Amino acid sequence: MTFLLQSTEERARAFAPVFARDLPEVPFVTDASAVDPAEVRFLMGWVFPEDLATRYPNLELVLSTGAGIDQVVNAPLPPNAKLVRMVESGVTTLVRDYCVMSTLALHRELIDYQAQQREKLWQARSFTWPDQRKISVMGLGEMGRATLEALRPFGFTLAGWSRSPREIEGVTCHHGAAGLDAMLEGTDILICLLPLTEETRHILNADLFAKLPRGAGLVQAGRGGHLNQPDLIAALDSGQMGGAFIDVADPEPLPETDPMWSHPRIVLTPHIAGNTRADTAAEATVQNIRRYLTGEPPLGLVDRSLGY
Rank of each mutant, 00 (worst) to 15 (best):
L158Q: 09
L77D: 09
F127G: 05
A178Q: 12
Q132K: 13
L196A: 07
K82N: 14
L208S: 08
M143F: 01
A105W: 12
I189E: 02
F209E: 00
S89L: 10
V95E: 14
V171Y: 01
D131P: 12
L194S: 00
T197S: 04
R166D: 12
A178V: 10
D188G: 08
S164K: 13
S136L: 06
G186M: 02
G90S: 11
G155I: 05
H175I: 03
T147A: 05
E185Q: 09
E169D: 15
R214I: 01
S136C: 10
A177Y: 01
H202R: 15
G186R: 06
G170D: 11
S89K: 15
F127L: 14
T187I: 01
I168Q: 03
F156M: 09
D97N: 15
A210R: 12
L212F: 00
T200K: 03
G160W: 01
E185C: 05
A150W: 08
Q123N: 05
I191H: 07
L180A: 07
V171H: 01
G139I: 00
K82W: 14
A216H: 03
S164M: 05
E88W: 02
A150Y: 04
A115E: 12
A206I: 08
V137F: 02
A150N: 08
F154Q: 10
G141S: 08
Y113Q: 08
S102T: 12
H107W: 12
V84P: 14
E119W: 03
F156R: 02
A146K: 09
G179F: 05
L180T: 02
R145E: 14
R133L: 15
D131T: 13
K134S: 08
A146T: 03
T197G: 07
L77P: 09
V171A: 01
P130W: 08
C173R: 03
L208Q: 06
C173D: 10
L196R: 07
Q114A: 12
R152E: 15
G160C: 07
G90Q: 06
Q117L: 12
R96F: 09
S89W: 11
T92R: 13
H107M: 10
A159C: 05
T93N: 15
G170N: 11
L140Q: 08
W129A: 15
F209I: 06
V137G: 08
P78C: 06
S102R: 10
S126A: 14
S162F: 04
E119A: 14
A146V: 05
T147H: 04
L106Y: 06
T103Y: 04
K82G: 13
D97L: 14
T103F: 03
F209R: 03
H174W: 11
Y113N: 04
C192D: 09
R166Y: 02
G176M: 00
G186H: 01
A150K: 08
L194N: 02
D181P: 11
M183T: 09
D207H: 13
E169Y: 07
V137W: 05
